[in-house]
Design a protein around this nucleic acid. Structure first.
Lengths: 194, 194, 194, 194
DNA sequence: CATGAATGAGAGTTCATTCAT
DNA sequence: GATGAATGAACTCTCATTCAT
């Protein structure tokens, strides 16, 4: 594929991304994307055969950008509890954001395409986050901030709660306070209890 | 509406329910339901204008039947921890069942129709379950089985984890052991720690 | 299927027949037939799924009408040679007719759908004609008109020549004289040679 | 046209020939040929405007190669009847061969393009074959092998039967025995009958 | 009420053909 | 000459929705 082709494919992917954010996954037709991209019907088919392929490309792009969720903006001397709190705050912000997000489309897509472990973005991101949180908890224990007998279990628990909250936010109105409360709850479980 | 009409509407709703279980929500067309019900195309329109209306009727029906989730099969002299374990086991069974369930359709529906709190079945069932679990925990504390400083928070935590697990099961392959592990984790958090 | 449906299906079939006569088989699209019938796109699909199905229906119709090719217009006291000559003349007329005929479409269809013996119209008509010609030749022998040691072979020979002529007429310009010459040739082979 | 151009045109023609053998005439698209030739879409248009032009070029090539159908492999001292038998055997082999042949495509093409006599390959080959067979029959008469009052008529009869058989083989399943029977029949007609 | 034939909008898809590079 | 991206017309097929019976 030529350089220009790659550029165009990227252009289509990014344009389609916006369409998916607005309309979710299933709702989107090839026509929608053709129109958003302002290209010809046939032109789109040069790059993608169906909306599924396009969405998968969007996911790839998403993944690349998401790989450094944690790595950024973390001051070197920050305490583990601060980093965790920052991460949770970030998650909260995203799940409450009323603006269009890809979340809905992603869930719609995976409802239809329960792909096996390795290629499943949802699982990958989940596992990656669990891993990072676990490391944070361990660091917190060493620092004397946290007390926890099962850091891996605690990390998974946090992520399942977050996933539950995400779905809740996506499928019913959920007040910010409710999210805060849940986040507080899981954080408190980590601190030493006297 | 005549008595016969009511019967027919119920018949359509129940038949459509099976269709939704098989195909989810979005995928289902009026044609699918007409064919499943073996009624005429026009006939269906006498009762429902679109698949959304039908699904809402299915949800109503669901709600009525679901109102007594807990009330059944619980031996009077059972310990709270046993009842809770039973409930979690029940949930586990449902979320792992590979057979058709309404879950997927329900999530698909609420992804598209983030209806406000009061009428939102998902929220209602969630809140109801939280309430029951909270009562159980309180009973467990009194019985000396559980130790918990925030029964309401613990109950919500359990339910969010369950919702997260439900989504995980729906969107990626999840082994039974993983579900067991999470359930065990939340249960252990309730027992007295020495 | 209701009576009205049957009527409409017949109407479509007959209208489509004309389309096939004009354009052959492959060339014809569902759209062509929709337009010729002046019905809606979807309307046609109520009766047929693709042009193949329509053409098969046309063939059925053809077959019913063709079943009495020989039976008509034959004066009771006619000599076998006269009847045979009449049949050959009939065939000649058809194969030379410049007006649109179904021939081209039929061959196109069977080029693509070399269906097995039993359902193959081409084979059926061929075999039926061979059988009738054989009977005629036998009758002619008894009457003392013909001499022939292998009536069945002669009958098949005649039909293969006719098929060859039909194709020739369809695929290149063939003068009437050429057809006459071939017909004469096969007829002469039947008469007693002194 | 440069030398290189001529080479390329020949390359395209020969590659397209294989495509036509596989898919017939109508079915083949410019895209098919572009892909088979592994050249660019635009490149093909430098040489041919449509599949018809390409097929005509294929036919020309065919014609050149076919000009010496009879001339080869015939031992000088062979009897006419042997040569004729050999030719018929050759024809039989070809018409029964289940492998891909150009036959179908050729008929499809001429069904659509009933070109006038001079340029019509089908007619040319037919007439050429008739001529050779006629010569053979005459030679056979002189040798005392054959008896025939109308060698030209007999030759034409043989060729029409062959054409009929070819079509039959192409459009319905025909057993080898049936072909043998017809060939035997026309051969026997040539031998002296006592 | 109930039927189901009919409509037509719209999605998907494929190709012949052009044209800037 | 040669390339291959791009276009747009044309076709297939499916459904929501209507309406005469």
């Amino acid at each position: 594929m030529s350089d220009k082709s790659i550029q165009k494919k990227k252009y289509i992917t990014q344009t389609a991304r916006r369409v998916f954010m607005e309309k979710g996954y299933r709702q989107v037709t090839m026509k929608d994307i053709v129109e958003a991209c302002q290209i010809s019907r046939g032109g789109l088919y040069l790059y993608f055969q169906n909306t599924g392929e396009i969405f998968e490309e969007v996911l790839k792009l998403e993944q690349e950008e998401a790989d450094d969720v944690f790595g950024q903006n973390i001051p070197g001397e920050a305490m583990p509890s601060d980093i965790l709190a920052l991460f949770l705050k970030e998650q909260k912000k995203e799940l409450l954001s009323r603006g269009p997000s890809l979340n809905k489309a992603i869930y719609e897509y995976f409802f239809e395409n329960r792909t096996a472990g390795k290629e499943n973005l949802l699982k990958k991101q989940f596992d990656a986050a669990v891993h990072v949180i676990e490391k944070l908890i361990q660091a917190g224990i060493q620092e004397g901030e946290f007390y926890c007998e099962d850091p891996a279990g605690a990390a998974r628990n946090i992520m399942y709660v977050l996933e539950g909250l995400k779905i809740a936010a996506q499928t019913r109105q959920i007040p910010e306070a409710a999210v805060d409360r849940e986040i507080l709850y899981v954080m408190q479980g980590l601190f030493l209890e006297e």
